[in-house]
Design a protein around this nucleic acid. Sequence first.
DNA 1: GTCTATAGAACGATAGAC
DNA 2: GTCTATCGTTCTATAGAC
Lengths: 202, 202
Amino acid sequence: MPYRRTEKTQARLDSQRGEILAAAVALLAETGYAGCSMAAVAARAGVGTGSVYRQFPSKADLIVEVFREVVSREIASVEAAAAQGDVRERVVAVIETFAGRALKAPRLAYALLAEPVDAVVEAERLVFRRAFREVIAKAIADGVTRGLLPPQDAEATAAALVGAGAETLVGPLAGNGGPDTIPNLVTFTLRALGSSDPGRSS
Amino acid sequence: MPYRRTEKTQARLDSQRGEILAAAVALLAETGYAGCSMAAVAARAGVGTGSVYRQFPSKADLIVEVFREVVSREIASVEAAAAQGDVRERVVAVIETFAGRALKAPRLAYALLAEPVDAVVEAERLVFRRAFREVIAKAIADGVTRGLLPPQDAEATAAALVGAGAETLVGPLAGNGGPDTIPNLVTFTLRALGSSDPGRSS
DNA sequence: GTCTATAGAACGATAGAC
DNA sequence: GTCTATCGTTCTATAGAC
């Protein structure tokens, strides 16, 4: 009788895959890509390196999946933040969520935004930024339609805001994130949108 | 009598170094890092690969020097653009110069801003962006002092503007740089500065 | 009994220390 | 320039599912 993978076995494999991913995510958040050696991931997940390779054909595949996993969390947070309120509130919520999370988990944010990675992961980075851009562009387009913002190319403004956020945060992530980092970014954003009242952080 | 490098020999070596650098710069502008193999650079410069290695200990050293060479040109252009006029004019000139040059030499701009490179060159990229930031921050600080701009952290705003510019341009560099790319960016910038009149591109 | 999944050693490449 | 440590990856022996 030929061997047939049973449902139970399949479930165990699936859960093992999840554990490996979780271990890799944790390592990424703690030590960046440097700490994500296959051996370290395997050890953290409590499996052998061979088992990691059963689930992921190569390290690049594993890392790309880890990246997607973490990014989808970030996108989800930001989308939730953008769900309600007027244009200003939505955009401010997006910025504060994005930046707040980054400053709370600087090592992870650095890995997502700026740490040198190979070209495959770099491509995922573009997807990441594009997703953020879309969330912001939607809010802006909405604001323009309702006459709350001056006419503008929503995609272009959104792209610029994503770049501004990333650039602003990379410095602080390396060390000193002054307490004004986020308020500064929010003020900048509101002005850039052409929102009539830039608002104050106090 | 020991061998002594004559002045003439030294001069020839220096000029050869310049030719190799020029060849590498040209290749970088045409084909990015991919085209910058040591062999291709040597061929373009009309020397043997051995001569390239005589001048540069490793490919990384060569590339870093090429990067610095190109970047210093960009910085110089931008500094020249920022030399005169009021705050608005200066900042607009910086953005238009930066973006205009990028759109005219997209392959090179992509290599400078976004193409995946190894960590050593990535470090140079930070230097590059920091230099841009300083030029802009100076103009902003000046504007704030003169009361032409609302109070703000000039460094933070400048960082955000550099990020906005880079992000805005990376998309177009990959393909379609619409004719509105630069005006959009200028409008965005002026609004973000809090300049009372955002200005129009028409 | 047959075949699979697993752990971990072994291998070649490469980067960093000295 | 040499050497060592470490990395990603492959291989193999074993335990266990079928």
